[in-house]
Amino acid sequence: MKQLITLNVNNETIEVYTAIHKTLLEVLREDLQLTGTKHGCELGECGACTVLVDGEPVLSCLALPIELEGQAILTVEGLAVDGELHPLQQAFADNGAAQCGYCTPGILLTAKALLDHHPHPSRDEIRQALAGNLCRCTGYAKILDAIEAVRVP
């Protein structure tokens, strides 16, 4: 069953006519061509599909767009503002925190939520916050470094 759904994605109001059983992940990638949001399992088991809904990290593979009308959805495409990279994006680039880069969008958003709530996390707190995002390339070291580099001292 298809329905017209109004979403706020990256500060843009978008109407999309789509099947209601499509998850946010599918609608972002397939209907809105926002392919920056990745997927590794579609079952809540990897964190690659993480986006922010009203500032909180959620798994887009287990969320229905129809339930998110009126809420602010932020994807990796919305992190940079006016062509200016978000400090986390800059730090990830500078610190080599993105190897293959496939886990990166989800991790950036999780990290953003952490720093928005908690500008002074310790390394252990960063570890805790990122425990729901698997990365197979980096051993997490450079990811933690990058977030520490942004953390307000």
Binding site: V76, E77, F92, G101, T104
Partner: peptide
């Protein structure tokens, strides 16, 4: 930084 780092951190890498 890697030459493709900006694409990776912006989700632009295809």
């Amino acid at each position: 930084p890697k030459v493709d780092a900006v694409n990776k951190v912006t989700g632009a890498t295809p």
